[in-house]
Design a protein around this nucleic acid. Structure first.
Length: 477
DNA sequence: CACCCGGAAGATCG
DNA sequence: CCGATCTTCCGGGT
């Protein structure tokens, strides 16, 4: 039985989070025989909103807001709110920033904000979802639907529920072509405060901290403006609300639950990765609702999927813990990242160190049982380049060294991640293998943050929509 | 020198 | 046994 006792890199928030994962999560990760069952994170609780509450928070009355707050107090074991500070309707409540909420209820602002954001997003999504499972047609789309034209860049707009709905719809209708999703105006237009979506989804780089160990010391200089969105001080308990006892009976009556049941027929238990795959792991860190990992990795532009590895060494260590390869380093991890290039999961942001861009949203990836199917898909890279704001010089550089941006790219690309050794031009004897602590349970992660509603909600990006090529999903059907 | 790239082969898992 | 997904190592480029 191995218990990790690594000296992990620590950041500014690490005085309360000495390890990248809270002790609870470590236990979770490395389940001991006596370890308690996994906690039910926020997401589950979300599905158990008080039955009377409309799913759309912005429609709440003052009374609804009070009910919601009281529910949050109970559900997340939060300190009692000062109701005088919440004499507002739901719309006003939703306009409060995380900071605002933190000021009104110290220690609980994050939780409140995250819950609200999820509710708003879901409400917006569900409000747009057609009542019948009809795949949206191209005329709703801002882009031509042809899967082989240049699709728009990943703009990270699709919330999971919406996307899964469309997945199911596409399957049911056997829609052969790509599916184009329309924008989500409601969230932007009324659900977000002054700064719009960027508030809730803005990357929240932690300020540079000299105490980071094992850190490459990358300075998040390009995101100063985001620092103010760093989560306010709070206890881990508040950040990761302790789960209320499951109350599925009540949940069944929840409007929310009902809707989700409708759109998640299987409750999506089979997220096929659960953090065991690198891309999923990164997504989970990036989308951590309490943003505990922004010292390691953070969004630069969530809408476009661009993120920066703030602390390459630290992140690699985390990944190593996750995979039980304790000799993991950034070099190795980045090699794994580079394998994602060929399957169009990732691309490198040229000219920016430690910056990468997701080319697929996580839901899309999770829906694709066989990642290698992505290879047969239209590479969104070109579009990504077109849409991703980049210095002209960078663009030029990229065009020069274009790898797979041609229309004929797929032709000469391997069909999967496995490197079929076609040219063993360089045989070299392998040296001693790095020590790998045998894992008693390689699936220790499966119950971690990944497979729950919170993460699902958080790990999708919304503000604008981009055309999704669902061909891969069709393939798996 | 650190980062980045991608080939090659091994490891692990389902 | 096989494919998927890394992990490990490395030579080379910037």
């Amino acid at each position: 039985m191995k218990v990790v006792s690594l000296q992990l890199p620590s950041g500014p928030s690490m005085e309360r989070l000495p390890l990248p994962f809270s002790p609870t999560e470590l236990l979770w990760r490395y389940p001991l025989p006596w370890a308690p069952p996994p906690l039910s994170p926020l997401g589950d609780a979300k599905a158990q909103l008080p039955a009377g509450l409309p799913p759309e928070p912005r429609l709440w009355t003052r009374e609804d807001v009070a009910v919601f707050l009281k529910w949050c107090e109970r559900e997340f074991d939060l300190p009692n709110f000062d109701m005088d500070l919440f004499q507002m309707n739901g719309k006003a409540l939703c306009l409060l920033t995380k900071t605002d909420l933190g000021e009104r209820c110290p220690g609980a602002g994050d939780v409140l904000h995250n819950v609200l954001q999820m509710l708003v997003r879901d409400a917006a999504i569900l409000g747009r979802v057609p009542s019948s499972p009809v795949t949206p047609t191209a005329r709703n789309a801002p882009y031509p639907p042809s899967p082989h034209s240049h699709p728009p860049t990943p703009t990270w707009a699709v919330a999971d529920s919406f996307h899964h709905f469309h997945s199911a719809a596409a399957a049911a209708a056997a829609q052969p072509n790509s599916v184009t999703l329309s924008p989500a105006p409601s969230v932007d237009s009324s659900g977000s405060p002054q700064r719009g979506e960027t508030i809730s989804y803005a990357p929240s780089y932690a300020p540079p901290v000299p105490t980071q160990t094992g850190s490459s010391g990358s300075n998040p200089s390009d995101s100063d403006e985001d620092a103010k969105f760093a989560p306010p001080p709070h206890s881990p308990k508040d950040a990761l609300p302790s789960p209320a006892p499951q109350n599925h009976a009540a949940a069944q009556h929840s409007h929310f639950r009902t809707q989700h049941r409708e759109f998640f027929p299987n409750d999506m238990p089979e997220s096929n990765t659960n953090g065991r795959l690198l891309w999923d792991f990164l997504q989970q860190l990036l989308n951590d609702p309490t943003q505990r990992y922004t010292n390691y990795i953070a969004w630069k532009n969530r809408d476009t999927g661009v993120f920066k590895i703030v602390d390459p060494a630290g992140l690699a260590k985390l990944w190593g813990i996750q995979k039980n390869h304790l000799s993991m380093n950034y070099d190795k991890m980045s090699r794994a990242l580079r394998y994602y290039y060929r399957v169009n999961i990732l691309r490198k942001v040229q000219g920016e160190r430690h910056c990468y861009q997701f080319l697929r949203n996580p839901t899309e990836l999770k829906n694709i049982k066989n990642i290698s199917l992505l290879r047969q898909q239209m590479s969104p890279t070109r579009v990504a380049q077109q849409q991703q704001p980049q210095p002209q010089s960078v663009v030029k550089a990229e065009m020069k060294e274009e790898r797979c941006d041609d229309d004929h790219v797929e032709e000469d690309m391997p069909t999967d991640l496995s490197m079929s050794a076609t040219e063993p031009w360089r045989k070299r004897p392998r040296s001693d293998p790095a020590p790998v602590i045998p894992s008693h349970d390689k699936h220790y992660i499966s119950t971690l943050i990944g497979d729950n509603m919170m993460m699902k909600q958080e790990s999708d990006y919304s503000s604008e929509y981009y055309a999704l090529n669902l061909k891969s999903e069709k393939c798996e059907q």
